[in-house]
Design a protein around this nucleic acid. Structure first.
Lengths: 160, 160
DNA sequence: AAAAATAGTGAGCAGAGTGCCCTATTCAAG
DNA sequence: CTTGAATAGGGCACTCTGCTCACTATTTTT
């Protein structure tokens, strides 16, 4: 075991566990153990370790925004006065339609992911962002479709 | 029942269900029923309806790429020959490090989300994308941090 | 106004799954 | 050689699940 890794590193068995979970998110420990040819104890121990090591993100990510009435997704590049960045992030976090934001290297300071009900809603949200102190400019792009739906399976398969 | 609705629309009880699930993704039907003051039957029926209506996305989204050894995320704007778009998407889907891609309105044709091990890895992946037939230009931005981690809770709260 | 669909409740039951305990074995590292 | 980690297997009390049925409201349709 490496001493300098910051995070527990997943081995092939962990990978297979995750693959099995991707295939069926609701499968029980017993079923997983059966699928992987491991004992139930082992599966439970590994799952606990995976959870403790932060391998799982929040459940929010599994909720379809469209089901909530937000069929549209947009990415907004936000240019800001950099020294006000911290406060701006706090302000942006008050806007519920912002579902995610990344601090970026390069031209853009922030890349903000927004969900909205329609174009008018997007326009309004963009206005709210622009109204934040320190925000200088935004560039809005509407996502027409998720041509490659979020996936980790190809990466999982490569280790397995 | 409306005839022209494309999707089952969630009511307040569904929303509360999702909130409870966000708070504890592993809670059982019994626990959810208890929390919401509903009968177990009702919870089970609603969960089934939620699942059938496509309210839940794949489990992949809950896996932390960092745990898989990909601590870095980048967004790559891809400019393409538009009439080759369909084939390009197929080609990009072959690249495992591309975890998501959106077709966009505006300047950029595609916004591609990539995970990678380090800067050199990103450089290599960008090269692979550029090598695809019909890809004309890319603009890569490295995500320095997820300053607002993915969330739907504020939107859920607003309905609740 | 009557009939029908919809949603919820409560009860029950057999079977499956969970959490937790203990022990034995294997295997690699010190 | 000793130690510790990972795994397998057994066991036990308890909980949860999936399912069915009967009953009651509420709303919608006829």
């Amino acid at each position: 075991m490496l001493m300098f890794c910051t995070m527990y590193s997943l081995d092939k068995t962990d990978t297979k566990l995750l693959q099995a979970l991707s295939a069926d998110p609701r499968s029980t420990f017993v079923a997983l153990a059966d699928t992987l040819g491991l004992s139930r104890n082992t599966v439970q121990a590994r799952m606990k370790r995976l959870e403790d090591s932060g391998a799982f993100l929040g459940f929010d990510r599994r909720i379809n925004p469209a089901a909530l009435g937000y069929p549209l997704t947009a990415f907004i590049e936000v240019h800001v006065q950099q020294k006000r960045l911290a406060q701006i992030v706090i302000d942006l976090a008050q806007i519920p339609e912002i579902v995610q934001a990344h601090g970026m290297s390069g031209q853009t300071d922030l890349l903000v992911r927004v969900v909205c009900t329609d174009a008018a809603d997007l326009f309004r949200i963009d206005g709210t962002i622009l109204a934040c102190d320190g925000v200088e400019r935004t560039e809005t792009s509407l996502a027409m479709g998720e041509v490659i739906p979020y996936r980790l399976t190809p990466l999982l398969d490569r280790r397995g």
